[in-house]
Design a protein around this nucleic acid. Structure first.
Lengths: 217, 217
DNA sequence: ATAATAGTGTCTCTGAGACACTATGTA
DNA sequence: TACATAGTGTCTCAGAGACACTATTAT
């Protein structure tokens, strides 16, 4: 029987920083089709519950990971007759950023098998066209950061400038000059110093900063 | 009765240059809902015919205007229960560029009432959320051009550098410096001089150029 | 010659990059 | 003290902007 309506889903590329490298959350599928393959977390639109697709994405992500992200951005819409064996399908891709100090909250909550994969090498044999989706989300994230946007949603509540720089480097995949990076930050209004708060390690302590609340990515 | 499936449509913001200003094609709706209001050309996905949504957009635009555009780019997806009185709907917005020497081909072919409206002031009382859609498409176009992309798909087959500059100015909404603009073009590989071809007017003739075929926007 | 537009030359200023330098903690 | 990392100063270079200048046609 021919389908008259497409299957409408959302998929979410949830990024975080782990071990100083950019990771994306993948889940192992527990149902057909593509049973056992790894995919981005995603779910089917429920017109009765969801006011709009952003709400679908929030609901799906919350259900799969237990995390409510403060920030969810549409990347692109993938569609066609060939991408899902069940028939004509349409998926709206979002990306979200998880602060690095909340990574473990996700892992603990999940019921299915999940993995944080290197965003630049999420593995071969992913379900559906999800390799393309990861690429698209990553490209959008990289693009934003390369245009001087700061990925503050990936940072913990308090962070040093070196940590912020390392996060940007993980996203861009290339080293940045410390002096240049900090010079740019002078003009930014979205981070603020925490006076008197430092990280003490085996060297000179580093000044702590935080995101100004109300910043936008 | 509650809808279980959303209405899936595509809308297209077709831009062109007319009288040196950026225009967008609007059509007057001939059916309920929003009968008589002006809207972007759009149409419903047909899973049986359309291999993917890009094909839907091509088909819809071709049907409404008789023009096959060489270039159709996804902008964003708009969705929700409130935007269409028929119920939960989802629309994938595309934009396309029509060379200014083909504007009249569209006007001649259309069956419904159509108008080329100023893209920066498409009118009040547009159908659905189409005022937002125009804004989004325009923002994406402006963004591209402000990042040094050349809107060659808006140009006729042969054009002068002054015409190209005026097109960019129409999109950006601000004047550009001639010297700066041309200096940038020196490094661009996407346009080429047509040796010996000039436009003769009431002044010094202007060199003609064309887009290198295979350029990408 | 004059008007009008096409097209170029050049000065300045800003910001990115490179990289050396200073500062301040621990061991 | 040495060492490691935090943080700053400075030189250079490339590109943007502003704007004056030259070039070439019609009238």
């Amino acid at each position: 029987m021919k389908k008259l309506f497409p299957l409408v889903t959302t998929d979410i590329a949830l990024f975080t920083i782990q071990d100083r490298s950019l990771r994306v959350l993948m889940v192992r599928r527990a149902n057909e089709p593509e049973f056992g393959k790894w995919a981005l977390p995603g779910g089917i639109l429920n017109p009765g519950d969801d006011a709009h697709l952003d709400a679908t994405a929030q609901r799906v992500l919350s259900g799969k990971t237990g995390v409510d992200v403060p920030f969810l951005k549409q990347v692109a819409t993938f569609s066609g007759a060939a991408r899902d064996p069940r028939g004509w399908s349409l998926s709206v891709l979002y990306y979200a950023l998880l602060p690095s100090d909340q990574v473990h909250a996700v892992a603990g909550r999940a019921t299915d098998a999940i993995e944080w994969r290197d965003a630049y090498a999420p593995g071969s044999g992913l379900a559906f066209d999800h390799a393309d989706l990861v690429d698209a989300a990553l490209a959008m994230l990289r693009d934003k950061v390369s245009r001087a946007a700061l990925p503050l949603h990936l940072m913990p509540a308090r962070f040093t400038l070196t940590e912020l720089q390392q996060t940007c480097e993980s996203i861009l995949g290339r080293p940045l000059d410390k002096s240049v990076f900090r010079r740019r930050l002078k003009d930014e209004l979205c981070i603020e110093q925490l006076p008197g708060e430092f990280v003490y390690g085996a060297q000179r302590p580093a000044q702590l900063y935080r995101a100004v609340n109300g910043f936008r990515f």
